[in-house]
Amino acid sequence: MTALLSKFEQKLMAGSFVITAEVCPPKGCDCAAFIRHAEALSGMIDAINVTDNQGANMRISPLAASALLLKSGVEPILQLTCRDRNRLAIQSDLLGAAALGIRNVLALTGDHISFGDHKEAKSVFDLDSVQLLECMKSLAAGVDMSGKKLEGTPSFFAGAAAAPEAEPFELTLFKLQKKVAAGAGFFQTQAIFNSGKLARFCEAVAPLGAKTIAGILLLKSAAMAKFINKNIPGLKVPEEIVQELADSADQAATGLAIACRLAREVKPHVNGVHIMAMGREEVIPEIVDAINN
């Protein structure tokens, strides 16, 4: 309802470096630990991404979890996928988000149902991520997807995902352009391991006018890296990183050191860093320190 910019948005638009992190809401309705984690981070990062049935694993609604964060004074980025909702449900949720004061929305296609814990479910994909962004644009213009006028006009700071290391890059570029044209103001990228490919991405995306927030993945062990490579779409840990972890006597510490190193490496190219701690939120402050110093 309010057209006030979110703090995250203001900072990004002012050209300051932002830090975001992903916190997975619970499988269940007890959000105490989730809120505790988010609150602990809120002093040092700009916004928390609330994932939406991530990896097609059923969890509490990201809309509810985002609203709880906002109530605790933590700024959320609501992730919204097209996998579990048709266009009616998507628009309802977006209006709900606006009514609750949630402004930052990351528009996603969503991982395929077959990766998750409800493999027998029917996937929706009534819209794709570009159409979801167009839908947000239309709501923000005061009409729904069928052209009906809304009571109260929502406003969003829309973001989209990007996979800078995916090949063929030119093919992905078409879609990035459509996402920006459809209103994406920022990209949060998949985990970056190759700053050369990130530079290529930034060069291509900068003229489009969207901000880039580079994904940094925190790895705990070589085994985890291998698991990710096998099971998580869009994430690909390069062989040399897996080897570096495998050769280490303290793999968790090495994983943290790698994340800090990558975060420092990408910093000069981008407008912010997005930390995916994969459940080790307690070490995020160390990565933030590495970025800031």
């Binding site: 296609t109 994909f125 794709d128 159409q131 995902a161 992905t172 869009g234």
Partner: peptide, 20 residues
């Protein structure tokens, strides 16, 4: 496309292969 996407590849595509 297992997701029936009309606007280009999803984030799971790599080396031209399908995420699923």
């Amino acid at each position: 496309c297992p997701k029936g996407l009309l606007n280009g590849p999803c984030g799971g595509m790599d080396e031209g292969r399908c995420e699923i």
